[in-house]
Design a protein around this nucleic acid. Structure first.
Length: 377
DNA sequence: GCATATGATTTCTG
DNA sequence: CAGAAATCATATGC
């Protein structure tokens, strides 16, 4: 108790003798100029402090009454203000370390991912953005398997809904709890020194706690999305052959552009449209076709002849019925050289054992090259 | 079931 | 970054 008394004295002494506090702390200016007034206040402060210290020793009713009395004491605001300031000062070292921490990179990653997957952020038709993102990430060859696609979207929407419901719950709980604590602290600030800063700090602590809970939610949501996505991608790997018609259109183009089987973007788009597949599927197809054709021209000879004939027939029909369709009777490869990007291809083709083909590639015959639309190249 | 065909993906390259 | 080449994984025909 001696120690307490000493502190009280110090308090009264320092702060009432006209030294403003660090934070612009305000005490009512002395009303008088004589020492008795100051002494009287010291007494007051000591009195209040004593009452506060002993308040717990008393019965509930008594304490209540005393609290009220203290609350109305003329020196109470000043005293609490001083106490708050001291608290601020002593608490400085503790909070200085943990305040204003940078945004958690982990949390940012989760947020970004959820945003990218279309789980967080504005509603966009139940995750269509995410599906598009998934398609883009994997080469964009989704397109037509709409069953899996819609399934994916439905599942994503489900995840999205759960996520948002939970998030809302957390936010609500956080707000409720914050309000509750704030009210409590405000209430308590009448009977113990609590600065607004302290309340603010407490609110921050609560928010941090809740956001760490939210992070768990985000984490598991991300996991769910990843699992869903990998399943979706796996499902997409289950390929289906293109329709016969589509293959035909692609082959027609390939063999009629054998000298340069690299369709332009526009041509790809056109083919994609005709075959009801995606542009990247067209690219895939041509990539596969080129490499496979190059690897074994012999194997594709028959096919080449077939399509050469076909295009020739088409051309014949298109150009004029008057033209003798002699070409259909002696099928040929409709061009003279397959110019792959890879220069060695020329060598490969020359080495090919198939003499007929070799002749066609190197020999004097140079058949007209027909466009798929019937025009002569 | 096996061999082959074929669409998709991955890795490499200029 | 487009395309080649290698590879994967399923489809298909026997």
């Amino acid at each position: 108790m001696d120690e307490q008394a000493r502190i009280m004295q110090t308090l009264g002494g320092v702060n009432l003798s006209g030294h403003p506090g660090q934070g612009g702390m305000t005490l009512p200016p002395p009303h008088g100029h004589d020492g008795t007034d100051v002494d009287g206040r010291k007494q007051d402060i000591g009195d209040i402090l004593h009452q506060i210290m002993t308040i717990t020793d008393q019965s509930l009713d008594e304490a209540q009454a005393k609290k009220h009395g203290l609350n109305c004491h003329r020196m109470k605001p000043a005293l609490f203000s001083v106490l708050c300031e001291i608290k601020e000062k002593t608490g400085l070292s503790i909070r200085g370390a943990q305040e204003e921490e940078p945004p958690d990179p982990q949390l940012m990653r989760l947020d970004n991912m959820l945003l990218a997957e279309g789980v967080a952020g504005p509603e966009k038709g139940g995750g269509a953005a995410a599906a598009a993102a998934a398609a883009a990430a994997s080469g964009g060859a989704a397109g037509d398997n709409s069953i899996e696609h819609s399934d994916y979207r439905a599942k994503l929407t489900q995840i999205r809904q759960i996520y948002h419901t939970e998030l809302e719950k957390y936010e609500q709980a956080c707000n409720e709890f914050t309000t509750h604590v704030m009210n409590l602290l405000r209430e308590q600030s009448r009977t113990r020194p609590i600065s607004p800063k302290e309340i603010e700090r407490m609110v921050n602590i609560i928010h941090r706690k809740f956001s760490s809970i939210q992070m768990q939610l985000k984490q598991s949501t991300c996991e769910a999305v990843m699992i869903l996505r990998s399943r979706f991608l796996d499902a997409r790997r289950k390929r289906r052959n293109f329709s016969k018609q589509a293959t035909e259109i692609l082959n027609e183009y390939f063999y009629s552009h054998l000298s340069n089987p690299y369709p332009s973007e526009e041509a790809k788009e056109e083919l994609a449209k005709k075959c009801s597949i995606t542009v990247s599927q067209v690219s895939n197809w041509f990539g596969n076709k080129r490499i496979r054709y190059k690897k074994n021209i012999g194997k594709f000879q028959e096919e080449a002849n077939l399509y050469a004939a076909k295009t020739a027939v088409n051309a014949a029909h298109a150009v004029a019925a008057a033209v003798q369709n002699s070409q259909t009777n002696s099928p040929t490869t409709p061009n003279s050289g397959f110019q792959m990007k890879d220069e060695e291809f020329q060598l490969d083709s020359a080495e090919n054992k198939n003499t007929l083909l070799t002749n066609m590639f190197t020999g004097g015959y140079s058949a007209p090259c027909y466009q798929s639309d019937g025009r002569i190249q």
